[in-house]
Amino acid sequence: MRRLFAWWGERALLALVSVIVLFPIAWMFLTAFKRPRDAYSLSLDFEPTLQNFATVFADPWNLGDMVLNSVIVATVTVLIAVPCASLAAYSFSRFRVKGRKFLFFLILSTQFIPAVVIVLPFFLMFRTLGLLDTRVALIVVNLAIVTPFVIWMIKGFIDAIPTDSEEAAMIDGASRLRVIKDIVLPMAAPGILTSSIFCFILTWNEFLFALILTRRDAVTLPVGLVSFRTERGDLWELMSAAGVMITVPIFIMALLIQKHFTRGMTAGAVK
């Protein structure tokens, strides 16, 4: 009897948490398909329309440009950050160099600096370089934010791989780089993929720096959302449609991570 009670209690609590977490998301998805006049009602009884999506991609909103900016910034950031971070993570994991721990702490400590503290120096720097409102500036900033985190994450995955296989490969005749290519990368692949997606999501959602450093040409999706707050009021249905455009790729990626996250590639290496 008590166990049954606990079982239901647990379910009820989970349901409550789910509702709290999912409600805003559900609201956004619904609103994206509503006409302006329905936007403020909570009723589920409305006539769905795709008009909002057409509107946001047309003049004057031009969401397409922002999608392109976001995709380019996030993709290039991942393509640069992940290979560099993988090599750094491998070195931190395997080489017993003096000062290694301190250096690693130093890299991680950059994560403790609040973004608002460094956004102004970045702004001044890019203004001096004439890089304000460019994707390059956003990529540089995102690399600075994301790389330490990805190093830390991938290091965790590499730490978990036993060194036996690597040493075996070195004895079999492989150089260090060859070992990384043939042994470490394939074994760490699920972890590196997970980290890549994480990196992509972080960059994709980055708001503060994009807000301060862009104006017109390099505006990304999260910043683009702000433009739906006009003098004529907040255009919730358009904002929601844009919100869906931001969220859906992230959902898909989260699903991908989940699938790869649980796959143990190291099984069978030892014993």
Partner: peptide, 10 residues
């Protein structure tokens, strides 16, 4: 070399 834990390539 043959390792104690074999060190195979999984």
């Amino acid at each position: 070399m043959v390792f104690q834990n074999y060190g195979l390539y999984p």
